[in-house]
Design a binder for these strands. Sequence first.
RNA 1: GCGCGGUUAGCUCAGUGGUAGAGCAUUACCUUGACACGGUAGGGGUCGCAGGUUCGAACCCUGCACCGCGCACCA
Length: 948
Amino acid sequence: MTEISKAYEPQSVQDKWYDFWVKQGCFTADAARVTDERPAYSIVIPPPNVTGMLHMGHVLNNTIQDILARKARMDGKEVLWLPGTDHAGIATQVQVEKALKKEERLTKYDLGRENFLERVWSWKEKHGGIIINQLKKLGCSCDWTRERFTMDPEYSRCVQKVFVELYKKGLIYRGKRMVNWCPASQTALSDEEVEMKSQKGFMYHFKVEAVEVDGSPAKGGPHPLTPALSPERGEGEDSAQTSPATNPLSPTGGEGQGEGAARPNGPMTDSEGRVWLTIATTRPETIPGDTAVAVNPKDPRYAHLIGQHIVRPLPAELPRAQKLIPIIADDHVDFEFGTGVLKVTPAHDKADFEIGARHKLPVVDIMNADGTMNTLAGGPLAGLERFQARKVAVELLREQGVLIEEKPYENNVGFSQRADVPIEPRLSEQWFLKYPAVAQSKASVAEGQMKFYPDRWTKVYDHWLTNIQDWCISRQLWWGHRVPVWYRGGEVHCGLEAPQGEGWQQDPDVLDTWFSSWLWPFATMGWPEKTDTLRKFYPTTDLVTGPDIIFVWVARMIMAGYEFMDELPFKNVYFTGIIRDKQGRKMSKTLGNSPDPLVLISQYGADALRFGTMRSAPLGQDVLFDEKDVELGRNFCNKLWNACRFRQMQGGEVQGEITAALLSSDDRWILLRLDLAIREVSDALASYNFATAVQSLYRFFWSEYCDWYVEASKAAFFGEDAALKANKVAVIDFALSHLLRMFHPLLPFITEELWHGMGYSADMPEEQGGRTIMFARWPKPLSDDEKEAWGLDDTVETFANAKFELVTQGRNLKTQFNIGAGKKGKFTLKPVGQLDSREAEVLRLLLSAESLELDSNYAPRKGTPTAFTKLGELYLPLDGLVDVEAERARLTKELAKIQAEIEKVEQKLANPSFAQKVPPAVLDEHKQRLADWHVKLAQTKAAIEALG
RNA sequence: GCGCGGUUAGCUCAGUGGUAGAGCAUUACCUUGACACGGUAGGGGUCGCAGGUUCGAACCCUGCACCGCGCACCA
């Protein structure tokens, strides 16, 4: 570093080094370089939406991937981090449609399919690079030469090939079924793209007249065992008429207890002898689509009415004969729920559709694709939007006098994840996939060939695979991979190319975006060719993604991997947490609580953002993001910068050789702490505990290296011994060069800048740190030989701790007696045994004292503040008046603390079985602790007595 | 309903059987020759509740409470 600025300025180094890495090809993977000595490490990016913008979830996810990739390079592996983007069918199409409407007041139909798709492509060309550039700003070390897009021609061919193969195997089929229909995007969705949300709505009760087939009033009225109830009748009065064995129902039939009017239980007969049934529904607007009502055949209230009919109230204008629908028996009906009478709407409810199929009921679709009602819904409803129609339907029932109750009700409603509108169950012709390789995919995770981190996701994954349903893969969109199927009359052709001959029409639908993304790990590597890339880098090593796409993406990739590569696609899956705001809310555009990562980068630096994110991201926990974390990251980088600056200020070349004979106790101590940090950080990264790794680094660098070692080193640097200084510089260079390497995966920019600035690169082989810190070798823990040569044994730690304890106590004395940080103070130490004068100088400096006198025969004046330490008694002789009472108060407080500690230990030791059963080491430790406290007790007591 | 996670200092979280920790916030002092994006010292916790196992439990077991999430066709 020729110019050493006082503070780290990230903006001036980030682009410089990123460009350097790219130009030097540092991110480029080469299959030819893979050998036994240089194994492959690979990871494929979860492709972000091509027109998306970077958000905090991306930051978390991609920082983790970058850490893994950079660490692997430093471990000497050939690394491929394969990037790319996803065409994101619905999201992208909707964006382009919106822009089209806003800018040109056009719909896609105005343009037509071809022209519209051209617009989407140009939109992609314009916006597609944004998120890629944002990833670069974050420092991501992806191999950009291999960037892929799920709509690349080669990729499209993969998708089509897979479709054709699965079709030929009979796993893909076309069928008319109930699907999740999104009225906003007007396409089918898979079950995984439907999100259940609790909704506040109403439960409506309305009555219908039961009649004979010919429309005449139902004969016989209520069943003999279940006398008609008048609606006014209160609960609890009818308990005698049915035995509990034949009627397990509570008199009120469900949850209505204590809410005033009792719900009618079973059929009612009015004064004219007509029989009425009550139906409960949350969707009265679908009444026109009802083609039956169902009761449970075992329900004694209704069993006798089975086979008769009811008069459907809507559409009201139809002649009575056209409104008759049968009362059918079906086990599906839960007679404890609602009134026990279920309206069956086969066209608009999945369960009802199945009932309808069992009873061969007509399917009456009363809605349009956009969620409005069609003419079959009846005059007043036709044309209305479905929720508007609900209100009107209720009014129509009320006008007919059949609405009995309208009660607030909370239930779960499926929402389209993308469009955030309630989905509509809808009967339509779609393509489905019967999942391949299910058993193998289950087994590989269950048996541990593939590992999930955290492990608990294996259970979630297993549960999904166990209850797996066929996947609806067709979408009624234009943007996407078109279904490779052609029709001509009754003929169907499925193939990679259009069939020969006239009159063939290609299926208009496209495939679910996930039907292309599930091929990502191998389709990006040149499949179906057996490329070198595939040979060397597949299966990939790690996958990093959010648990929210475990089904839609992860599970499906595993199945595709087995089906098409006959091998798992990755060995480990790391599931990140979800990034939330500091109040724990999910980040969303509507809440506006998601900070723009690029703004954060420009304010604090990319390294700071990475640091802050990773520090607060423990394994498998959601992350509560707070901008303060990024600020902390900036502060941290600045501290690192200045620690290196301090080294630079000592001057001299990089010192490679450490002379054991010249090592101080502090030098030995920091080398031991470095060794521990290397082991902790390496272990933490190996087990994906990123927050732990950051914590270890933080502790080592800040709390140990800066707070103690750098301060202690000043004793030598301010001294005159040149050899000692040079050796101290050597230790610092050793520590910093290791430290920078350990920080590099987390903080790529600042470490590269410092690596070169400090001159550490000059010392290294070209491809192992000489060119860039990226390829410098990951630090190894110290060897036993090194430890022995440098004299790193247990005594080092003990002595250092004793020193630090003395310093802390001395500083405490200063504070207590108002010799604040600004003032120096003079200390006297009555040492236990010999204390090296150099050590004394270090202590003086750490105490920030004017002097520290060593005097074995020191006799303090009465009232002199004293600290008892393992290295001796430390006195703070005060000029002028001595405040005896202040010292007494201080020591008395100290005494109380000591006594409390002694009591705690004594209590344990007093337990007879403690001594018998406890391991000897623990027993010794307790005894030692007790002895130590007793020494302090005696010293403190004596000191108090000496005060008189 | 089933399953999963969480509950430790004011806040965010570490801590898998042996002296309760970190960062932030807070209080006091300090612009000392790396750094005020800094330093020093301090205050602050019956580890959600109740049982159990153990010489010993924040940690293991059982039950409960509350918060969050996922799965499930309850009209």
